[in-house]
Design a protein around this nucleic acid. Structure first.
Length: 935
RNA sequence: GCCGCAGUGGUGGAAUCGGUAGACACGAAGGACUUAAAAUCCUUUGGCCAGUGAUGGCUGUGCGGGUUCAAGUCCCGCCUGCGGUACCA
């Protein structure tokens, strides 16, 4: 019988679903294992072949663990709040919920076709009120908590209130508003005026990880700095723990390194500098305490609070002009334009060691958000200070012996100190330690650890996100009671900001909180006595994705994010698979969120993801046509790729993306191209042989004429017309072929272009394998058959446990070749092959399993153990003579004693032949493996 | 600039602990079957050299050194590509 993949796949997908084969229970005697994929954002474009790569890998691992006897939690859900749906809503007027749900349906349909073993009963959607209830709940909890720096953990805000009541004499005298303001400085979710990344085009604020090189990650629009009153999460309080936790989790070194850099721990010192003529000093942060003797000026960030104190009257106008200029520069301009700018404040600081008077400047190369927003400048040993000093003609004093600072600064932390008083002669590292000791003892400063990690800005001026469970009374925020959650996203008449610049929720009519009745009422009823306005911002994308893995454990629970029993059973994600693009976003926020819940006693593990594997991206292979733009161009002449470097066309063509589905082996389907879009209807071509349509008096295109397209490897995206839809691959080859092929493409972590060359080979393999199951026979397997089988089991087991899925496929192919050479159709062998194939190609494996006479599902089978005895072969192999030495390879157990190996070697017939009666000079034995005999 | 990762045939890639480099697949070439095509099957396939041939020799994992009986793998110095990050004091 033919390998009818579509029939097989439909049949078994239906059977699995009807029998609830993949439904997972929280109660089991089996050991638990939790395999998680990063849930997708359901975009309008649907899945492309790149998305399932990680899902296939996690599915293989899940199925393997199940066969190994584990109770495996393997869920899927949707990160369904976000900007694209909202942008689409603004353009079309369609409610984002409608498009989002349609997209989710499409995603589910596509995912189901690939045969994943998800327990769909556990599906979560971040835009579902039953889900975001718990996002709001967590936010509310953060609002009502503070970070106790002594205990190094989050605690309820009541504890802080009690402390103030007991220890702070002012507390009793404060008004309610003053108390709230004071508490706000401690809350883990807090409101403050912050300098934010404002994206005018998107009309919203963005978090640091949502901005790259001054442009928004989504959309690529310019971002500028603006001070706004915003919600933030005190992620920075967890910086030390987020860093330390990395040592306890099994992630790739590169990803951990990325997080370490993002957290950016730096050990240094804070030092106080007096201002000439003033009493109060100001504080700077430095990692180079050893260089104080070379400080020749000071620099403040333009936003620094010290600025107001140090500007002299005669410099005021100049300074203000400079501050103004800084304010109006966008982040992108600031990054692009690295020219030295700055202004003298008119004041001088006193160097605490040399007592020298040094000028205080303002410059935007000093950042307000890091350290204290003020630095001591040591031009000889810091390249930025150096550039500044050169520009303003400030003195440069070298502090390290032999350092040449005539052309550039000497930034390395090595060498012997000079010009440095009591530090002279010390190595830099010693000098840093000694200076730290000195400043601590004299009280000039203290040792300080700084982190680069900032608090996460949590407000978005958008519609399609979780509403805050917050109302405002007397200008101060209050949380709605826990039992009133969720606060559901209201309907609005318009998804754009309001005319007076309020976020879209400003359009919502039913958007006020009645504290007397604890319910949402109309805005018209706001009286600021019992009815108050609700927060108009919504939460950012990472809010919903920060704890979704906990919800899967217990997604039907109405009383808790995750029940205690469920959480204590599953504990944490054992294996998480997803892309590296979340390294500094989701994967930081989730860890923070989880640690917070851990502190508050709601979860039992402080790290959410025990092991994490990054899958690479599957890139697209784009094709191009080249529009002629030279002299006399009509705009519809296209030059074949092989000609574009010719004199005639060089520099006169413009590459245009062309749909890869109308290009085969880089040859354009001319008719399909003309039909593709109206603008190409009358396209004319210069063919690969240099002739044009005018040279060819045919109607249409002669068959032998070819138009060759150029190509490039790019991101797979709709706009590049290089998207390959998995549905098409499934229809043509089947899900099992797609699964095997995606794994066969190369190592999981590597990025690679999608390339259909080779998919036929994988498909052929399945077809041949299928034929072997025509009529399985009884009877005992021969030694050779068992050797093949056990080699396969050993290999596949090793591969899956080491996430080396790509190397299993050749193992299957080799086993097939060997077994078909032996004409093996023994049930005893074939049924085991079906089991080890099941994780990779579950549909065909299920069918094969049933052909072997089984009536259960293959997922209930037991993973076969390989047995060494079938593989053992102690004979000497591959004798090779190299430079008078003989080399042997043994396949025998590692722990074979040295003498045993020597005996085996000398007894071997090949050895005897080579030795020809002579005694060897030396026998080198690496136990159990290799032998060299020197004659 | 800094950090991380990679570089192996025409192509994707394998070599898992330092032990026959190029598994497996694609592509290509030749052949069988066929009226023909498709499908299928068989043979060859890193390079160079010798041989009618089985086969043998040399060379070969980005470049230059080193360690080792033995290096794609380990060490040192470069080159190239990819990814992340950037006035973080």
């Amino acid at each position: 019988m033919e390998y009818n993949f579509s029939e097989i796949e439909k049949k078994w997908q239906k059977a699995w679903e009807e029998n609830g084969v993949y439904t997972v229970s929280n109660e089991s005697d089996k050991p638990h294992y939790y395999v998680l994929d990063m849930f997708p954002y359901p975009s309008g474009a649907g899945l492309h072949v790149g998305h399932p790569l990680g899902y296939i890998a996690s599915d293989i691992y899940s199925r393997y663990k199940r066969l190994k006897g584990f109770n495996v939690l393997h869920p899927m859900g949707f990160d369904s709040y976000g900007l694209p749906a909202e942008q689409y809503a603004i353009q079309t007027g369609q409610h984002p919920e409608k498009t989002t749900f349609a997209n989710i349906d499409r995603y589910i349909e596509q995912l189901k076709k690939i045969g994943f073993c998800y327990d769909w009963n556990r599906q979560v959607r971040t835009c579902d009120p039953a889900f975001y209830k718990w996002t709001q709940w967590a936010f509310r909890l953060m609002f009502n908590s503070y970070y106790d720096t002594a205990k190094q953990k989050a605690r309820p805000i009541e504890e802080l209130v009690r402390k103030f009541e007991e220890n702070d004499p002012n507390w009793a005298k404060m008004s309610e508003k003053e108390r709230q303001e004071k508490l706000m400085q401690y809350r883990i979710a807090y409101l403050s005026d912050t300098k934010v990344n404002w994206c005018p085009k998107l009309g919203t604020v963005l978090a640091n990880d949502e901005v790259s090189e001054g442009l928004s990650v989504r959309g690529g629009y310019p971002v500028e700095q603006r001070v706004m009153r915003q919600w933030s999460l005190r992620v920075s309080a967890y910086a030390g723990r987020l860093l330390e936790g990395l040592d306890r989790i099994d992630w790739t070194e590169s990803l951990k390194e990325t997080q370490r850099n993002w957290i950016g721990r730096s050990e240094g010192a804070e030092m106080q500098f007096n201002i000439k003529g003033q009493d109060a000093p100001f504080t700077i942060f430095t990692t180079r305490a050893d260089t104080v003797f070379g400080v020749t000026f000071m620099v403040l960030a333009p936003e620094s609070e010290y600025v107001a104190r140090v500007v002299t009257d005669e410099k005021r106008a100049e300074v203000e002009e400079y501050l103004n200029r800084c304010k109006h520069r966008t982040e992108r301009e600031r990054i692009a334009d690295r020219r030295v700018t700055g202004v003298f404040t008119g004041s001088y600081a006193i160097n605490p060691l040399t007592q020298a008077e040094i000028p205080i400047y303002i410059s935007d190369y000093v950042l307000a958000g890091y350290g204290t927003g003020a630095i001591m400048a040591v031009p000889a040993h810091d390249s930025r200070d150096y550039a500044f000093a050169k520009h303003f003609n400030l003195p440069i004093v070298p502090l390290i012996e032999g350092a040449d600072v005539s052309e550039s600064s000497f930034d390395a932390k090595e060498g012997k100190m000079i010009n440095s008083g009591f530090l002279n002669g010390l190595e830099v590292k010693e000098a840093i330690a000694k200076m730290k000791e000195y400043i601590t003892n004299t009280g000039i400063g203290r040792v300080k650890v700084n982190y680069r990690l900032r608090d996460a800005i949590f407000s978005r001026q958008r519609y399609w996100g979780e509403p805050f469970p917050i109302y405002y009374k007397d200008g101060m925020p209050y949380a709605v009671p826990e039992e009133c959650l969720p606060i559901e996203l209201p309907e609005v008449s318009d998804f754009k900001p309001t005319e007076d610049g309020q976020p879209p929720l400003g359009h919502a009519e039913m958007w006020a909180w009645d504290t007397a009745n604890n319910k949402i009422v109309s805005k018209k009823e706001i009286d600021n006595k019992t009815v108050f306005p609700l927060e108009l911002c919504t939460m950012p994308g990472f809010a919903g994705s920060s704890a979704y893995y906990l919800r899967y454990m217990d997604n039907k629970n109405d009383n808790a994010l995750v029940g205690k029993a469920a959480n204590e059973y599953w504990r944490q994600v054992n294996l998480y698979i997803g892309g590296t693009e979340h390294a500094t976003g989701h994967l930081i926020y989730s860890r923070f969120w989880n640690k917070f819940l851990y502190d508050m006693g709601y979860v039992c593990e402080d790290e959410p993801f025990k092991k994490l594997i990054n899958q690479g991206m599957i890139q697209g292979r784009s094709n191009f046509v080249y529009r002629y733009t030279g002299e006399g161009a009509t705009g519809n002449l296209y030059v074949s790729y092989n000609l574009i470097d010719n004199e005639e066309y060089k520099g006169k063509v413009q590459p245009i993306h062309v749909n890869v589905n109308i290009v085969k082996n880089d040859v354009l389907d001319i008719q399909a191209f003309r039909n593709w879009m109206p603008e190409f209807k009358d396209a004319q071509f210069v063919y690969s042989d240099g002739t044009t349509d005018e040279d060819n008096p045919y109607i249409g295109t002669p068959a032998e004429k070819q138009y060759i397209c150029g190509w490039a490897i790019e991101k797979m995206s709709k706009s590049m017309f290089n998207v390959i839809n998995p549905d098409d691959v499934v229809a043509q080859y089947g899900a099992d072929t797609l699964r095997l092929y995606e794994m066969f493409l190369g190592p999981l972590e590597m990025s690679k272009p999608w390339d259909t060359n080779g998919i036929d080979g994988v498909h052929r393999f399945l077809r041949k394998l299928w034929n072997m199951y025509e009529e399985p026979s009884d009877g005992e397997a021969t030694a050779e058959e068992l050797r093949s089988l056990h080699k396969l089991i050993k290999k596949v087991t090793w591969d899956i446990e080491n996430f080396s899925f790509n190397t299993s496929i050749p193992a299957f192919m080799i086993a097939l070749n060997e077994l078909s050479a032996l004409r093996c159709n023994k049930r005893a062998v074939l049924e085991k092959v079906a089991i080890v194939l099941a994780p990779y190609a579950p549909h065909i494996a299920e069918a094969m399993w049933h052909r072997c006479g089984h009536t259960t599902f293959v997922v209930d089978a037991e993973w076969p153990a390989w047995e060494e005895k079938y593989l053992e072969d102690n004979s000497v192999k591959y004798p090779v003579q190299v430079n008078g030495k003989m080399r042997f390879t043994f396949e025998c157990p590692k722990d074979t004693p040295k003498e045993e190996v020597e005996k085996l070697v000398l007894a071997h017939e090949d050895t005897a032949k080579y030795l020809a009666g002579n005694t060897p000079k030396k026998i080198i034995v690496v136990p159990g493996r290799i032998v060299n005999i020197v004659m």
